[in-house]
Design a protein around this nucleic acid. Structure first.
Length: 259
DNA sequence: AAAGGCGCCAACCGCTCACGG
DNA sequence: ACCGTGAGCGGTTGGCGCCTT
């Protein structure tokens, strides 16, 4: 007998998460706390593998996540950290607690790599760079010790910024995360706010970007988006989402988050 | 207005690590 | 010391929306 796959390929749902699934996951974690991911699918009835649940929580639902544009300060920190740590995204994320490793990785790959490449071509021949376009260990001009001191300063500043925001990154923040996701869903689904899960999921996932003031302000409202094969198995008895939200988080939560 | 290309990001995949038996 | 299992991590991909032609 070989080693069984980490998750049963049969009966495991893949693809974008629906609001219903998010709510189930968050309410489960509210009760049991994050961890023991193996038990999550069986205990919640979610047709997702443990990895998928962990990732969804970590990258989208957990409290305190900041989305949207990176600040100059964050950008500089990432560049510093990348020079110091290499592509250790999780380690970098520990210095930027509001950002996920996935976010940092994506930002590096889509923005910073190019930015640095441009800079590199601008200063061609002045210093050697690795394949990511970085100064090799960013070293020749300043010492590692200097980098680390600079980093410590940045971390200190970041911590100050964090503590000034909220001392309690509580479970409420993940409610807020879902609310923000739902906000996009509501905007895009003026007609069918309930059991048409195909519409629900499509609109929902099209609006996962809840950047500070930078969310996708799509106003398209007339078309039912195409249904993907993956969505076929969406059940028909899903709760109306605002209701589900409110029943989980309190009667007025939904309105207060959405409006 | 339509088509194709590009950018972005959520999610998946496969590997490694950590830990308990 | 070895093995099995779950968790975590980094690389990669898929697909949607926007932009350009």
């Amino acid at each position: 007998m070989g080693r069984p796959p980490c998750c049963d390929k049969v009966g495991v749902k893949k693809g974008p998460w629906t609001p219903e699934e998010d709510i189930i996951l968050v309410s489960y974690i509210k009760e049991h706390g994050p961890g023991n991911w193996r038990a999550v699918p069986s205990n919640t009835g979610l047709l997702r593998c443990s990895k998928s649940c962990r990732l969804r929580w970590k990258n989208c639902l957990r409290p305190g996540i900041k989305r949207g544009n990176f600040t100059d300060h964050e950008e500089k920190m990432i560049i510093h950290l990348q020079a110091l740590l290499g592509n250790r995204w999780a380690a970098m994320a520990s210095y930027l607690p509001q950002r996920t490793d996935n976010d940092i990785k994506n930002y590096w790959n889509t923005h910073l790599k190019k930015k640095l490449k441009k800079l590199q071509t601008g200063t061609e021949g002045h210093e050697s760079r690795d394949e990511d376009g970085l100064s090799s260990s960013a070293s020749h001009s300043i010492s590692r010790g200097q980098w680390e001191r600079r980093l410590q300063t940045d971390i200190h500043l970041a911590k100050q910024a964090l503590s000034s925001q909220s001392s309690t990154t509580t479970y409420a923040s993940s409610i807020e995360n879902i609310a923000k996701l739902l906000k996009g869903w509501v905007r895009n689904s003026p007609k069918s706010a309930s059991s048409n899960s195909a519409v629900t999921q499509q609109s929902y996932n099209n609006n996962n970007n809840f950047a500070d003031g930078g969310g996708t302000e799509s106003t398209s409202s007339d078309e039912t988006p195409s249904t993907k094969a993956d969505n076929k198995d969406n059940n028909n008895n899903c709760m109306e989402l605002p209701e589900a939200f409110e029943s989980l988080f309190g009667l007025e939560s939904f309105d207060s988050f959405i409006f």
